[in-house]
Design a protein around this nucleic acid. Structure first.
Length: 192
DNA sequence: GCCTATCGTGATG
DNA sequence: CATCACGATAGGC
């Protein structure tokens, strides 16, 4: 079970951290993940939810939970399998076809937001170096700062930070270089 | 390999 | 506020 090839993402920026994040765990083709969603987002219908957290579980769920807890110190974390499942089914449930647009709620500094916005423009099967990304943002010398912001992406896959590689081929990834390579290989292949 | 330019963040006072 | 150390970098030597 994995994300549909043509999934579209819509970024919504939050003015403050979410009061409540509803989370649950999923089993995917690339391992277990923790997903956090918020609802509703401004201007959307009552039952509309947006993804705000998507982390791989690399060791165990407690560790992953603690990491999310640390990242969102002001937010309440509610276990809510039902609400998460609504989004998870849209994302992972279908097969190759998926016309649903997935809202992603992000919160961060202006700089971070601009980095994350630039990330979603990198197409599936493509990669981009840190300096290329910095250049695209019109901040060619802020390479190191861009890398910091990339590393802080909280929504794996949907905000595709795994598509950023360093120029010398080094491939660092929050959840390990091996997984990163697997994701990239998967995206480059035609076998979905 | 080591040295340095670069810049947003978070910690600290 | 001011300062400092720290990166998922990159380029020069």
């Amino acid at each position: 079970m994995w994300i549909a090839q043509n999934t579209q993402v819509r970024l919504v920026t939050l003015k403050e951290p979410p009061k409540t994040i509803r989370f649950s765990f999923l089993t995917t083709k690339f391992g277990q993940m923790m997903m956090g969603v918020i609802k509703p987002i401004a201007g959307d219908s009552e039952d509309q939810v947006a993804v705000t957290v998507l982390h791989f579980v690399d060791e165990n769920i407690v560790r992953t939970y603690n990491e999310v807890r640390k990242r969102w110190p002001k937010s309440e974390l509610w276990k809510d399998d039902k609400t998460v499942k609504l989004v998870a089914d849209k994302l992972f449930g279908g097969d190759k076809e998926n016309s649903e647009e997935i809202p992603i709620a992000i919160f961060g500094s202006d700089f971070q937001l601009s980095v994350w916005r630039a990330l979603v423009d990198i197409k599936r099967g493509e990669t981009c170096t840190y300096s290329q990304l910095a250049e695209r943002m019109g901040r060619p010398t802020a390479v190191r700062a861009v890398a910091n912001a990339v590393a802080r992406n909280d929504v794996a896959i949907l905000i595709p930070c795994h598509r950023i590689v360093s120029q010398n081929g080094d491939s660092k990834f929050h959840w390990g270089p091996v997984l990163k390579q697997q994701l990239l290989a998967h995206e480059k292949s035609e076998n979905y």
